[in-house]
Design a protein around this nucleic acid. Structure first.
Lengths: 133, 133
DNA sequence: TTCCTTGCAAATCGTTTGCATAATG
DNA sequence: CATTATGCAAACGATTTGCAAGGAA
């Protein structure tokens, strides 16, 4: 199971690192194809999964049924805009600790949690202000 | 868009209220079919969506890519067992407030959050204890 | 009668997989 | 050379949808 270099995987990771909007597999495919036209969707999926397993990127499951990917593996959270569907980052230090210490009643063993927020992103806020003063 | 009664919708909701394990659409279909053999999968999906919109049930998106449904609409959280995949309830009062007051840096407007936990459920815990003393 | 709901099947959409070929170490 | 990765296309599983027929108000 040794991992060998592939230009495709490198390009996928490179592209992801340039983006802060947590693109989907399809968006990755569309973009990488501009530098490497022969790449196939299957390869994109395979590498996104592999990179996620390796911990080099993060796979985000945000309730819209489509996987998003994030090259920023640091500890942070996400907000989904209920208007435009965009995904943006939030700093929210200590949520892990807070949830870990919350008053949780459960007879099994809790190992971790997934949290994301929804709301209205900065862009959409400005937009709605502009038209409804 | 007035809503008219349908026996199928009633049976779907009735079934869901008897279950505490947050079944998927397919499981609902299999079970309702025993009382109403002609029901179609499409009808099950349509009604689960409708009931969710009406707030009579809750749709759970737990990161496994399959929607689960819960007739318990009270405020509670869920734990997904990493061993058996089962979904169970947790009481965790105050998480909403805690997250609302967390130290969150975000330039948009946060309206709410989704949180679920993962870990090992009671059954699987007992099971693993039994075989590894 | 009006309009909502259904059953059925086909269609959609994101994702995975089998396989022969190409590239890496 | 052994092994991993690829492109392609077909397969997949969950969900949605178009449509003609059935049922509720």
């Amino acid at each position: 199971m040794a991992i060998k270099y592939s230009r495709q995987r490198q390009l996928i990771k490179d592209f992801l690192m340039t983006r802060k909007d947590h693109p989907t597999a399809d968006v990755v495919y569309m973009n990488v194809r501009q530098k490497y036209p022969n790449i196939s969707l299957g390869t994109v999926y395979r590498n996104l999964s592999l990179l996620s397993e390796l911990g080099e990127i993060r796979r985000l499951r945000l309730g819209d049924g489509i996987d998003h990917y994030d090259a920023d593996t640091s500890d942070h959270y996400h907000v989904i805009c209920t208007q435009c569907g965009g995904v943006s980052d939030v700093k929210a230090d200590g949520i892990g600790d807070i949830l870990g210490n919350a008053n949780i009643e459960y007879d099994g063993e809790i190992q971790g949690h997934v949290t994301y927020f929804y709301g209205i992103c900065e862009k959409c806020l400005k937009y709605s202000r502009a038209c409804c003063p």
